[in-house]
Design a protein around this nucleic acid. Structure first.
Lengths: 208, 208
DNA sequence: AATTACAGAGAACAGTTGTTAACTGGATGA
DNA sequence: TCATCCAGTTAACAACTGTTCTCTGTAATT
């Protein structure tokens, strides 16, 4: 059993990552279902056939991109939700956290938003699975909050999905405003903050 | 000025509609950005060049599809929101209205969900514009409700967007469960009903 | 009845696509 | 040192793409 890296494996991983990066960049202006294998290899500078050493198809590459993109979202989601409990101050910080995440990983956010309902089934399923896991994590997080006293597991999961969906919707809004004026970004921040606040209010009075 | 229909114009409209229908069907398994002009004409049974008599490109056809798809959604949105004011009974009926709409126009719902964040800019913009108009309509509807007393126009629009997004998210869930078991559809109904209820609770206590 | 307008057909174009097969050369392991 | 492995290359394939130009037949207009 050799866990030695090896020049060879390193090179392969490097090429693989280059393919993923190139694909992600190309997906800024199209959907995965129209992404061609030759298009990706051309962008990287390798022969078309080299693609098969790493992925079975572009759909397969898409599934790999889901892991990568949601890996970066992963950390953000936890921070967001644990911050989104109640106080206006914390909600506002959560929204700004989302904004900063979109600034840092716009291509990842775009990919998830685009392919969540996109034309490639395996990718849709991968995203759905990952988001489902997110929602479960969020539920466990929420369960530890004193405000969750008396809530059923099912209701907590219902709320988690609401939070996750709201976070993605907000991310998408920030994404569209990436190259826009700062005023637009502020408008979105105010909008998202109030929506989050309304949900929090509903949460607080759920058991009334 | 002749507003006579004319055999010729009728035929043209018929072909145009056939192109739209064929495209919508083909888009069940792919995104608009990968939809080919030849693919559509082949499905209809006309020459590829006939396409240009009706649309400049497939993106152009996509914009036309937005009008058609959101026309059917139009009626549903109004019914849903006017019913989603408060009582559990009315909320439940609103969710079932969504479910029935998805049953009736699955291809339309799929198209909007898929292309809202899809790879074709002009189509994204068309959808965004239409949904924005929806939200404004909903706001006007909400404004007439006694519960909206003391609400600012801006807050009403914030709530409208929350309703519209929630409606689309629910539609998408029902769509994925179209060929699934009835139990799954019931699960979604319960989930969406509770989410809508939580939002309504937040709405009721917004001015506290 | 003669002329015009125009939806659709047909053929051809250069360029693209995914996939197969056989090959090369340098890292790997015995 | 030598045989093996394997990431990436090269060449070729049939099939497909969007777009142009020319043509046809018939409805609409005069």
């Amino acid at each position: 059993m050799s866990h030695t890296v090896g020049i060879r494996q390193v090179q392969k991983q490097k090429t693989r990552q280059a393919l993923l990066d190139a694909a992600l960049a190309l997906l800024e202006e199209q959907s995965l279902s129209s992404l061609g294998l030759r298009e990706v290899t051309r962008a990287v500078g390798v022969a078309p056939t080299a693609f098969y050493r790493h992925f079975r198809s572009t759909a397969d590459l898409g599934v790999a991109l889901v892991e990568e993109a949601l890996g970066s979202l992963h950390r953000m989601v936890r921070s967001t939700v644990t911050a989104a409990d109640s106080s206006d101050e914390r909600i506002h910080r959560a929204v700004e956290l989302i904004a900063r995440h979109v600034d840092a990983y716009p291509a990842h956010v775009r990919f998830i938003a685009r392919e969540r309902h996109g034309g490639v089934q395996s990718v849709r399923e991968a995203i759905r699975g990952q988001l489902g896991r997110f929602a479960e994590e969020v539920r466990d997080e929420l369960a530890q909050d004193p405000e969750a006293r008396g809530w059923s597991e099912d209701d907590l999961l219902m709320l988690s999905h609401l939070y996750v969906d709201q976070m993605l919707a907000t991310s998408s809004l920030f994404l569209e405003a990436l190259d826009g004026p700062e005023s637009e970004r502020e408008r979105i921040t105010r909008l998202a903050t109030r929506q989050m606040r309304l949900i929090s209010i509903g949460r607080r009075h759920w058991l009334d």
